[in-house]
Amino acid sequence: MSHRDGQSGRGRRGGGGQRQWRPNVGERGKQVIEGLDENSPVIQSFRKFALELDTKHDRYERIVKHSRDITIESKRIIFLLHSIDSESKRETVLTEAQNRINQLNSTIFKEIAIELKGQDSYQYLRSFSAGLQEYIEAVTFLFYLRDGKLPHWDEIQQNIVYDEEKVHLDPVEYFLGVGDLTGELMRCCIQSLGTGSTKSCYEACSFVRDIYIGFISVSSPGHREFSRKLFVLRQSLSKMEMACYTLAVRGNEIPKHMLADVFSSSEVHDAHDEGFCVD
């Protein structure tokens, strides 16, 4: 803005030739900038600020990149866990998933921990929160399939503590990840209808119901995302309860492998649901 005004001023002066100099809006600002002392304390301290801000932004961006890698790998692990469709495959899949999680712990999480060393982890929380939540989703999914229960967040925390540094796992982040887990359990539940495993369908449903009860029992931690997760959780739970209902009502009427079809037709519309895709 000031630049353009300055130019028009010069143009007019050039045309007028001998006309007396007239100040123009923007002219003065330009003079000041041109005559600016590079070594003035103000400019010098701004140079320092620029450096400080850049350092912070760069670190933030590097962590965001790591976080994205974690998200991708976690989604793949979740996809892998969904591939369990028979008891025979179960052990190999669980072992592989565990190995890949260990791999994440010892590589990308360590990178983040190193970035965060000596920093206030909360300052960068938003840079890795997405990856962390997806990771928690994968880990808790594995725990559910293997032990049928949710681990305490400290159990997950201790896997991402290194010699002198660690990635701090805030319990709120943990439960946000657990909220996402319920979406996976819903898919798991519907899927097991297809394989005729009605037991695991009921199990998953009551597990999610427990989580739902837990969520509504705690006072809101004042996190915006928390209530959004609760809403999605409620939707997943209703779908699972409907699945169990269908199973109870029509389970004896039609062959088991067709039950999934009954359900999947009503499932189509939430293909946009996040979480279950492999990129």
Binding site: G29, V32, V42, I43, A50, H57
Partner: peptide
């Protein structure tokens, strides 16, 4: 004031703001 704010302005221009 004009001098002061102009200097402030050029200081801020040195920053890479997100």
């Amino acid at each position: 004031v004009s001098q002061f704010v102009a200097e402030l302005n050029s200081g801020f221009r040195l920053l890479n703001l997100k």
